[in-house]
Write a protein that binds this DNA or RNA. Sequence first.
DNA 1: GAGTGGTCTAGACCACTAA
DNA 2: TAGTGGTCTAGACCACTCC
Lengths: 233, 233
Amino acid sequence: MTETGRKNWQAVQEEVRRRIHARIWAPGEMIPNEQDLAEEFGCARATVNRALRNLSEAGLLERRRKAGTRVALHPVRKATLSIPLLRKEISDRGAAYGYRRLDFRPGHPPADLARKMNARAGDGFVRVMALHLANATPFALEDRWINLATVPEAAGEDFTETSANEWLVENAPYTHGDIAFSAVSVDAEKAGHLDCPPGAAIFTIERMTWNKARAITYVQQFFRPGYRMKTQL
Amino acid sequence: MTETGRKNWQAVQEEVRRRIHARIWAPGEMIPNEQDLAEEFGCARATVNRALRNLSEAGLLERRRKAGTRVALHPVRKATLSIPLLRKEISDRGAAYGYRRLDFRPGHPPADLARKMNARAGDGFVRVMALHLANATPFALEDRWINLATVPEAAGEDFTETSANEWLVENAPYTHGDIAFSAVSVDAEKAGHLDCPPGAAIFTIERMTWNKARAITYVQQFFRPGYRMKTQL
DNA sequence: GAGTGGTCTAGACCACTAA
DNA sequence: TAGTGGTCTAGACCACTCC
């Protein structure tokens, strides 16, 4: 059952996966070093390295210099979520995308949010509430604060035609962001916009994006009841 | 401001990031090919390749043979979630982990679930309901079906001491899985277990894991109200 | 100190695909 | 068909860290 052919990095990866899965290399156990594996598989060490590095990033292996490579004891399940623009998500589902701005006004975020956004006294903000529709029915409601101190150009926009999301993608690239997923009961106002009963359980995504140390925007999106975010392990 | 020093792959990646961010290379625009960049940065093409491949996997670049490399028009936000064992998640929060098996019995999953699990007539199943506690208060409730046709060894377990999750990690490694996140209103029974009002909005994770084409287990986890799953963009 | 993984190089060939 | 990214090689040096 030993494979002897010369292997490319994907074949090496598959063979290592197989051995882990078949318990030939058990969880917590050391596996041979790159040099030896390269000889066994008849390929260069760099090829083995590529395969093992990939498996390590996937959480199946743990690698340390000098200590060597071992099979992860508790293979951490890692799932990669891609968070598309709502326009794209809706049209990918074959539905017609619609956008409606509900409210737009200057203002100040609540104290705890201002603190999380690392806001300074005097920073200006605008708040935008908007609805994304799929085939003319509510799909997601978004409640957004934009920091004008970070994105002064946003002061000239009112987001009646273009969603703040898309405007920001074009005009205010971010360096990093935080994202959180949770469930909430919607209040009567939001329920009205989403066309669902007050108190319904709603899936929400909160996102804060940053340009270096300055917050660009905070947004909370409320999805229609029944929404499921899916991905692979 | 042009950096001229010889670069390693991380420095190349940072410089490319900077140019995208500074709109030197605008969204949708082609960037130079690997050969030219290698000359500019004074490194080997493989080094540039490593950097650009990384950025491509991150969703910032789109690469095609012959067509070249361009800055992604809509940088897909990709977030990597790590889904730890609940035991680990709870103890990482500094709380004492507790486990209580609530129910355990053989049975058959509802027809739609059996179909999703690709079950054959005659496949045996067990259902396990269990509670994970943090400092003796309910943290998450799980409702699980295990396919005994795929994992016959599970028939000898009753999961009173060890959670099915941890037993399966040890004894039934999976090849791939599907995962979905959503919000639900809990029914009275689940609310009782989670010690929250009936109808509360609850964050749930559903997971189906597979060994090749055979379903191992389906589990739905109901988290205590207020639970937030966080990660970085 | 020594063994391991991490990275870089220079060159080569291959796979894909736009033109 | 030609240009681009994808991969592989053989060798080298380095960085880390266990012993």
